[in-house]
Design a protein around this nucleic acid. Sequence first.
DNA 1: TTGGCTTCCGTAAACGTTTACGATACTATG
DNA 2: CATAGTATCGTAAACGTTTACGGAAGCCAA
Lengths: 350, 350
Amino acid sequence: MTSRGSGEERGKMKGIRELAEHLDISIGTVSRALNGKPDVNEETRKRVLEAAESLGYVANQSGRALRKGATGVIGFMMQTGSEITGQGDTFFMSVFDGVQTVFARHKLDLVALLCSSEEDPNDYLKRVVARGFADGIILSATRRHDARFELLAKRRIPFITLGRSLTDVGQPWLDLDFEGMAEASIDRLVARGHKHIAVTRPHDDMNLGYVFEDQCRATLARHGLRLDERHVFRSTPNEAGGYQIACELSALDARPTAIVLINEAITVGLYRGLVEAGIMPGRDMAIIGRQSPHSQFLSPRLTSFSLSLRDLGIALAESLLATMPAFADYYPARSERFLWPMALVPGESD
Amino acid sequence: MTSRGSGEERGKMKGIRELAEHLDISIGTVSRALNGKPDVNEETRKRVLEAAESLGYVANQSGRALRKGATGVIGFMMQTGSEITGQGDTFFMSVFDGVQTVFARHKLDLVALLCSSEEDPNDYLKRVVARGFADGIILSATRRHDARFELLAKRRIPFITLGRSLTDVGQPWLDLDFEGMAEASIDRLVARGHKHIAVTRPHDDMNLGYVFEDQCRATLARHGLRLDERHVFRSTPNEAGGYQIACELSALDARPTAIVLINEAITVGLYRGLVEAGIMPGRDMAIIGRQSPHSQFLSPRLTSFSLSLRDLGIALAESLLATMPAFADYYPARSERFLWPMALVPGESD
DNA sequence: TTGGCTTCCGTAAACGTTTACGATACTATG
DNA sequence: CATAGTATCGTAAACGTTTACGGAAGCCAA
């Protein structure tokens, strides 16, 4: 027993070496004890665990990652700046919570990799993965063509995307069922007698915009209707964009009688713009959108498509782990691709 | 020159050793070249940089962090789950963007440390810092008493908090000027003849709730008025909470004529609840709140306190770096504490 | 020529873990 | 008693960097 006297619980633990000396055990045994290896006496394991607890020792991340070749970290890449993704904080926070319930079972940590709006997302991702920061990556806000896919595939980093893309490297993906949303929306509106239906989509090349518009067009065609090109509104995914759409809409001579919103962040602005133009949502203009924290508190209440973001996160996490060899015994290997269904919540806006 | 033929640009770079062999230079020189050390020939430095670029080599994070004792990562701790933080949709994303413009100058990376709603925040933080994950931490959503402060102080991790607390370990902090907001709001409402003013605050022990309520009370007292205990509304920081407040409000026999909202995420729900109760915002009830992406698109437009979240992020980052010895030559050492002013943007709701 | 200075580069030792391997003591079996 | 087997633990070699140190040139002045 090396004499260290007291000194417990104060300051920082130096490392496993100090812990080992404190216990008068070799560092190898300490490590094995902490990592649950079988070849260590149960009594000494208990001693080690207790000492680690009381001294506040936790294995250093860098040392462990260097040796094991894995960091135990999964990164969720997202872009900062307010109006990039069009998804609010609460959207991702809910998804994260689902992801973490899965990760917690495997001692994995989820961190959000924040790409500045001033940096090219491809460069950022390249930097992050080359540094070996995370064992796996979750991508969101997928674009029509997305070079990030190829980058991760080339480096053989396990990853999954929340969203599809024309770029396809065989990775698993999950995406919201925008086709189903488009179809259900159009069907519902047509059934209510609407013949001139407008749609919105992001101003940039987010993939979901193409998927959504195409399916709306196809569904309208099935009803013998067509999508007027002037009724496709592109906007930034925020309230200002929604307001802008309302302005353009009201200025039209051949005004549609209904509109389907692919993005939930534009709803309040759209409502406001319509009201200012004397167009009463739900009466003069039918609106179907996406559920958001406020959608049920608008007047009239928004008819919207909802989904369990938490469950989505769970599915996302499990699909990712299924592609990682280290978790092959927990999740059968597969490369899943799944359209996540959304449920129509009737409101008074259509 | 070791014969490697081609094989460039494909797959992953093994490490600095392979890069060095490729160049027929020692790894020490390669490292020095990449890190901008002075004692390396400019021509060889150019060769190294070009080779690294073309081979896609980036120094491994774990190895570098282990050797240098610093990770180059700053963590912003936040809690997942939808209704924890109570900040609106894009609040953090905007702050992050400001933080990153500062960090980019020092090759620091910002990541969001996501604490699951199922894990104790103190345990989470302890785990993160003990692992040596980040060189510095930014804390938000500070509570009345916040053990996280003591934990970080004990381990001597540089950190700053976005928000104050009764727990004070001498760290720098930035906080929104809720005192100023309370004072300006009350003054304005009293000047307009209101005598019965209600306030909102979070349902939990977030510190800002105490600060805000106290200052409202003090300012009312200055005008010879008092804050009715029944006019202090606690709610979850989301739209449902706002709706709930409206319900409680309308059920009151002695109804206030004005209300000040400390949280921006409850506004839409409150509007809705008031309207349903036949109370017209801006006419029957004066409302002053916080700016959010939708506040300007509500009817009537919300009179709100706004601030530049991006600038806030910049200040936050600079104050943090000022406490880190490694950046002492860029930012003069100081332990700053700063109330961030908010500007009143008149709307039609009061 | 000698010595000192500068410029450049190679060598090797850390950093804190994990783990393959071997060593020891003990138990069971013949 | 000899041997094999088992339980437990110590030793040391990795993992990929960075950096202190020293050495080998080249240059210049004395």
